[in-house]
């Protein structure tokens, strides 16, 4: 993406909307137990948000949106999911067994927590990691190759 083709207005708008979309994606993830949604859908929405950032602003914009290593996100996601499976075993339950915990929050009512949500968080992270990795490679990586070639041809 050449800088000349960037639309500054579009860039600003996406930046503004980006965070809202990310929060929405987290909502989608958490709501999965009750309505359509869940970790995959949430992760994909967040991933698409990243895609838009990249398409609008290229590599730099992507790095600004997600200043983390894709491998770290992927690895953490997988590790969280695996731990969510393993921990119940160590606590005397079955593997990947979930518990339903109702935490009283005083006047706010109570938080209905199903531990499988941790697993969903792992899913969410992995999907985002995938999106990041794809964008960094097939997006940014190819940009880099293009830049190298231009350089080589220019010389």
């Amino acid at each position: 993406m050449r800088s000349a083709r960037r639309s500054v207005v579009f860039e600003v708008v996406t930046r503004l909307v980006f965070h809202a979309v990310i929060i929405y994606s987290i909502y989608i993830m958490l709501v999965g137990h009750y309505e359509p949604g869940g970790g995959f859908a949430g992760g994909l929405i967040a991933g698409l948000a990243l895609m838009v950032r990249y398409l609008v602003g290229g590599r730099k914009e992507l790095d600004a949106a997600a200043p983390v290593d894709a491998g770290l996100v992927l690895g953490l996601g997988l590790a969280v999911a695996a731990l969510a499976g393993l921990l119940p075993t160590l606590l005397g339950g079955g593997v990947l067994q979930s518990a339903i915990i109702d935490i009283p929050l005083g006047p706010l009512g109570e938080l209905h927590l199903v531990t499988s949500v941790f697993f969903d968080i792992g899913v969410y992270l992995v999907v985002i990691g995938l999106a990041l990795d794809v964008l960094r490679s097939l997006g940014g990586g190819i940009d880099q190759h293009v830049a190298d070639e231009d350089e080589a041809v220019g010389v």
Partner: peptide, 26 residues
């Protein structure tokens, strides 16, 4: 005995955990 009965999981879940950690500490 409980843990022994969960032995079946180890060959799958442990490498996955390991893979996750490997990536995270790439």
């Amino acid at each position: 005995n409980h843990l022994a009965s969960q032995l079946v999981l180890v060959p799958v879940i442990l490498p996955l955990l390991g893979a996750g950690l490997c990536l995270a500490f790439g």
